[in-house]
Design a protein around this nucleic acid. Structure first.
Length: 427
DNA sequence: TCTGGGGTCCTAGGACCC
DNA sequence: TCTGGGGTCCTAGGACCC
């Protein structure tokens, strides 16, 4: 496969929505435009999206909300809880638009996609990029930046440059040698895709402060200090494409459901309730993905900011046979919980992780296809549905439970619920 | 008072085998 | 003085991403 592409100049575009969650909120709420806005994490805990105006006020990514609540009280800052139903729906519309430009689209995250333009023969990349920006704005009112280059890492870097320099009008194309060089030189190591806090520290100790010097790093040293991924990264910065497009992602390997509680819980019976609900949700995700889980682990922890006596623990178990049986999954989760629970801590978070996922078609004992298999399938489905019903009855009594996640500033689910659709007032 | 959630990949090291 | 070599598989933990 590589032989067909090795001599071919690659062209990758990265299209990324600016301040995605805030921009989604702004689509339907005009009051949020042109002013400082933040969107909060689960539990209204910290700021996970900020408008440019909010960034200018030095509100940082991940900043605890209680530290800036004052700004909301004073009417300076607008605040919203996370509205995941809305963001997921807008995200899929965003993807649909990009598919109109090339079939080779990789959904990299909820707010950004890689596009492979290598075979597209665009006469002018500048106008293609501008067309993408205009179309996304016209159709769903999202502001995006476009970065284009010969590797995914350089496209990321170009996108970052477009964001930081308003005079570029949201577009940065890295093609000629001198432009690439100057862009690399201006990019600090901590802003490179794949370089986190640990590698930043390590590189700076080695006298490497920007992307240009990282691109000149010795191969052996890169491999030794930052694993094979680090070596790939260095090559990508040199313009050698090592990270391929993933237009058809592999199925998930893990399914996790974990939450911080609205209020701490100390008693085993309270944690049991939370863990049961998370196990149930994890199982529902499992059904949706049509997978069986081979392992399950449960974690609990108290408040990590309480440094005095921080307690965190988890336990893993393997199922006898890979399963998607809700009863079995919930029972195992509760039993694991009782193994790690100890009296004393005020627990603030719990989670359930299903691992070793395999397709439902590989269920032991389902090897024989035909009528028998289908009957068993149908029976299983029936059991699953009934179990789900029974269990959800058991847990609905706790709708006001202390540990429930807080969403106190939620906007309407405008695009996915009829009853929450916005109304237009006629004058 | 109040601090998110869900993923991936890579490697070292242990267990086990011949 | 002397203590094999080379595999595979599994998992915990550390790095990263948004």
């Amino acid at each position: 496969m590589s032989s067909t592409t090795s001599n071919h100049k690659r062209i990758f575009a990265l299209v990324d929505v600016n301040n995605f969650y805030v921009s989604c909120e702004r689509i339907f709420d005009l009051k949020l435009r042109d002013r400082p806005v933040v969107v909060l994490s689960n539990n209204d805990g910290c700021c996970i999206a900020r408008s440019n105006e909010a960034k200018e006020m030095n509100i940082t990514m991940g900043q605890p909300f209680f530290q800036i609540r004052r700004l909301e009280d004073e009417g300076i800052l607008k605040v919203r809880s996370s509205n995941y139903a809305l963001y997921a729906d807008i995200s899929s519309r965003f993807r649909e638009i990009l598919l109109g430009f090339t079939p080779d689209v990789e959904v990299y995250s909820i707010d950004e996609c890689f596009l492979d333009f290598s075979k597209m023969n665009f006469k002018n990349l500048d106008s293609a990029a501008a067309e993408i920006r205009n179309t996304v704005w016209r159709w769903i009112h999202l502001p995006v930046c476009v970065g284009i280059a010969s590797t995914k890492t350089l496209a990321k870097l170009a996108n970052h440059t477009a964001k930081k320099n308003p005079e570029l009008n949201g577009i940065c194309i890295l093609q000629d040698e001198s432009a690439i060089r100057s862009c690399l030189e201006k990019t600090e190591v901590e802003n490179i895709w794949g370089i986190g806090p640990a590698y930043t520290k390590l590189l700076k100790q080695n006298g490497i402060f920007n992307a240009l010097s990282l691109s000149e790093m010795d191969d052996l040293q890169a491999r030794k200090q930052m694993t094979i991924q680090g070596l790939r990264l260095v090559h990508e910065l040199r313009g050698i494409s090592c990270i391929e497009m993933e237009t058809h992602p592999d199925p998930k390997k893990n399914i996790a459901v974990s939450r911080s509680f609205g209020a701490p819980a100390a008693e085993l019976k309270d944690l049991r309730e939370a863990v049961a609900v998370y196990a149930k949700r994890a199982c529902e995700k499992l059904w949706h993905e049509k997978r069986l889980a081979s392992t399950i682990s449960v974690m609990i922890r108290d408040n990590p900011f309480n440094t005095e006596r921080f307690y965190s623990n988890y336990q893993l178990a393997a199922f006898q046979n890979p399963t998607d049986n809700m009863n079995e999954i919930m029972k195992t989760a509760i039993s694991l919980l009782s193994q790690i629970y100890k009296k004393g801590p005020n627990y603030k978070k719990a989670g359930v992780i299903l691992g070793g996922l395999i397709p439902v078609s590989e269920r032991p004992g389902m090897l024989f296809s035909g009528k028998k298999g289908r009957t068993a399938d149908a029976l299983n489905l029936l059991i699953q549905r009934q179990t789900a019903k029974k269990l959800s009855f058991a847990s609905t009594g706790t709708s006001s439970a202390f540990w429930h996640t807080k969403f106190s500033k939620l906007s309407p689910r405008c695009t996915t619920r009829w009853e929450e659709i916005p109304r237009v007032r006629s004058q």
